[in-house]
Simulated assay, not measured.
Amino acid sequence: MSVVYLVRQGTTLHRKDGSLLLCQGKRPVEKIPADELDRLVVLGAVTLSPSAVSFLLSRGIDTVFLSFYGRYLGRLNAGTRKNVYLRLQQYDRLRDAPFRLAMARQIVRAKVLSQTGVLESRLKDGPNPVLSRGREQLLEAAAGAARAGDLASLRGFEGRAGAVYFRCLEELLRTPDFVFHGRNRRPPKDPVNVMLSLGYTLLLAALEREVEQSGLDPGVGCFHELEYGRPSLVLDLQEEFRVPAVDLVVLRACNRRVMRLQDFYFPDRMAEEARDLAEFSELRREAPVVLTYEGYRKFIGLFESRCGERLSVRTLSGGEGAAGGRRHELRALFRRQVARYVRAVKGEEEYEPVVWDSRR
């Protein structure tokens, strides 16, 4: 699989014979061979010529559009799989309230247990009262999620767990350069939240592609509310991967000083190219913190590298099922879990999300 990110602002993508050519004005910047290109991610003010759009569609190259601030805008593809029978099964199963609640419980428990594992991994280095208390609260939330009687109470447990987890995240940062006082977004207001938001967006785009290729309807999930235009199923599947695919990448990038403050634009020194007026013209005076061009390149490289890593994960039951107790490439796990969700919709097996295994 080959994924290419177009980050350089003010460029235009053209078709050139059997390849793609990125130009700054009339000057060629980069030639992109299309033979092994699987996905193209376009950030901000990058233009696609009509010939490039036609070429991408004819080759079936999944093309994702993000704003310069990393907000997911949409995608270009030649149409989703037309597996209407699978979708009918999906709709029928998700009208079954007990089935939907059981699936949602599993999703939330797996997410919270992965978050717990992040704190436990740090506690191996020595006692920390804040993290110890946070671990206890997360385990309580996971137990509460397992017995939640409806989706509303389940969402309450998930929300409380998130608040505890992000309060503890500050304890996990080991460099004074990066300060984190809790989760904020739309737009994110500090470098750590910028990286978290972008990482979650990249993760969502990767999972949405797998869901569409499976034939499932990405808009119909179990845990997230149905809403016009919302990819609820993708958001459901994203939960179990937030920790291993994004949170740990951000912590590693900060603590190892791979990412630095120079990789971000701040409102008092915002370059003109960092102002995406189509999205934030009304907030020009309150322009958020954003990654620089080099910052984008570095963080995207970290995310893609992580997707190719082999990680230790387990299922909730601890069995050897789809993933239990073994090391798997993260990108392959995206596809494997979507396939497992399909089998659950068909009634062939129960769906078990994966949990990041901090013990290995």
Score class of each variant (00 low, 15 high):
124 K>A: 15
125 D>V: 00
125 D>T: 14
125 D>A: 15
127 P>L: 03
128 N>T: 07
128 N>M: 06
129 P>K: 12
130 V>M: 08
131 L>S: 06
131 L>Y: 10
131 L>R: 14
132 S>M: 15
132 S>F: 05
132 S>N: 13
132 S>P: 00
133 R>N: 14
133 R>S: 15
133 R>A: 14
134 G>H: 09
136 E>H: 13
137 Q>L: 15
137 Q>I: 00
139 L>D: 05
139 L>H: 12
139 L>C: 07
139 L>P: 08
139 L>N: 10
140 E>V: 00
140 E>T: 13
141 A>T: 00
141 A>I: 00
142 A>P: 00
143 A>T: 13
144 G>H: 04
144 G>N: 04
145 A>W: 02
145 A>F: 05
145 A>G: 08
145 A>R: 09
145 A>E: 02
147 R>V: 12
147 R>A: 11
148 A>W: 07
148 A>L: 01
149 G>L: 03
149 G>V: 07
151 L>G: 00
151 L>F: 04
151 L>Y: 02
152 A>N: 11
152 A>V: 15
153 S>A: 13
153 S>T: 12
154 L>V: 03
155 R>D: 02
155 R>Q: 11
156 G>R: 11
156 G>V: 04
156 G>D: 06
157 F>L: 10
157 F>Q: 14
157 F>K: 13
158 E>R: 06
158 E>N: 06
158 E>L: 01
162 G>P: 05
162 G>I: 00
162 G>Y: 09
165 Y>N: 08
165 Y>P: 03
165 Y>T: 02
166 F>P: 03
167 R>D: 10
167 R>P: 00
168 C>K: 09
168 C>S: 11
168 C>V: 03
170 E>L: 11
171 E>C: 13
171 E>Y: 09
172 L>D: 06
173 L>T: 06
180 F>H: 09
180 F>Q: 03
181 H>V: 10
181 H>L: 14
182 G>E: 04
183 R>V: 03
183 R>W: 07
185 R>D: 08
186 R>P: 01
187 P>K: 07
187 P>Y: 10
187 P>N: 06
188 P>Y: 06
189 K>T: 15
189 K>M: 14
189 K>C: 12
189 K>W: 11
190 D>M: 03
190 D>N: 11
190 D>Y: 01
190 D>Q: 01
190 D>S: 10
190 D>W: 01
190 D>P: 07
190 D>R: 05
191 P>V: 06
192 V>N: 07
192 V>G: 08
192 V>E: 04
192 V>F: 13
193 N>L: 04
193 N>T: 05
194 V>G: 06
195 M>K: 11
195 M>I: 06
195 M>L: 15
195 M>P: 11
195 M>C: 14
195 M>T: 12
195 M>Y: 08
196 L>D: 08
197 S>T: 12
199 G>P: 06
199 G>K: 06
199 G>Y: 04
200 Y>R: 12
200 Y>H: 13
200 Y>V: 07
202 L>Y: 00
202 L>K: 04
203 L>W: 01
203 L>N: 01
203 L>Q: 01
203 L>Y: 02
205 A>N: 03
205 A>C: 08
205 A>T: 12
206 A>L: 00
206 A>V: 01
206 A>P: 02
207 L>N: 09
209 R>W: 07
209 R>E: 12
210 E>R: 14
210 E>H: 11
210 E>V: 11
